Simulated assay, not measured.
Amino acid sequence: MIFGKKKNKDSSNIAMMDSKVNQNYVEEKVTKIKDEDVEVVMENEEGISEKLSNASPLRKYAELGKIMFAMLKDVKKGNYPNVPWFTIASIVVALLYVFNPFDLVPDFIPGIGYIDDLAVLSISMGWIETDLHKYLDWRLAENEKA
């Protein structure tokens, strides 16, 4: 019982350190996103969507991925212009990270291969959740007009 408690305490410390490392990693990548990176995401929409749908740990993000792609398309077309660059960059970083098979923890490792993908997606979602809700509200309003 003593060993179990110590193990849990150490695990939570590792998880907190890992979360901070991932958050710093994501922040650094978001600040370096360029317009060309948005194009790369758009060109790879099918592959990214497929990975989100087929990797069981990432399935819960499949619908969010669709919303993110729709938002990027509407921004690119000029239909939805008032989006902070930070939001666009966060979406691009999250989706490119998921698409990249050579990330911090390779996806082919059973059981833990998607932990880093989940962390990057979760961190990004935490930052842009409000903007995604605004976008969905806008889409509902647009659909009601049509």
Rank of each mutant, 00 (worst) to 15 (best):
Y114M: 10
M71R: 06
L64F: 10
W127V: 13
S124V: 06
D74Q: 08
V21C: 10
G78F: 06
I91L: 04
A119P: 10
F86W: 09
A62I: 07
P57A: 03
F3H: 13
F69M: 02
F108R: 10
N100I: 00
E43P: 02
S90F: 01
S49N: 11
S124L: 03
A55G: 02
A119C: 11
I91D: 03
H133N: 14
E39G: 14
N79P: 00
K134A: 08
L58G: 04
V120S: 03
F108T: 08
D131R: 09
T31L: 10
P81L: 09
V75E: 10
A62K: 12
L140M: 11
N79L: 09
L72N: 03
K34F: 06
D117R: 12
S90V: 01
Y25Q: 08
D116C: 09
A70H: 05
M68Y: 04
L58H: 05
I33V: 14
G126K: 00
L72T: 01
Y80W: 01
E63F: 12
Y25G: 03
K5S: 15
L140P: 02
N143V: 06
K34Q: 10
H133I: 15
Y97C: 07
M68C: 10
D37L: 00
V105S: 00
M16V: 12
S124C: 08
I2P: 09
K77N: 11
N8T: 14
Y114K: 11
F108L: 09
A55R: 08
L132K: 06
V75P: 04
P106K: 03
S11K: 15
P101W: 01
P81W: 08
L140D: 11
M125T: 13
K73E: 09
T31F: 05
I123G: 05
T130N: 15
E50Q: 14
V38Q: 06
L132H: 08
E46A: 15
V98H: 05
G78V: 00
I128F: 02
G113Q: 04
P101H: 00
F69N: 01
S11G: 09
V21M: 13
S56P: 04
G78A: 05
L64Q: 11
D137W: 02
D18A: 12
I33F: 05
V40A: 06
L96G: 03
N24V: 11
N44I: 01
N54Y: 11
Y61K: 04
V83A: 00
K73N: 08
L58E: 02
I128S: 03
I48S: 05
G78E: 00
P84H: 03
Q23D: 14
I109K: 02
I115V: 10
A146E: 13
N8M: 13
Y135M: 04
I109D: 01
A94E: 07
K145Y: 06
L58N: 05
A141S: 13
L58W: 05
M68E: 06
L136S: 13
K134W: 07
S11R: 15
E63P: 04
E28K: 10
A62P: 06
V26N: 03
E27W: 08
N22L: 13
N24R: 14
I91T: 07
V93A: 00
G4S: 14
K66E: 14
L95P: 00
M68K: 05
D74Y: 04
F3N: 14
D117H: 05
E129A: 13
P57L: 02
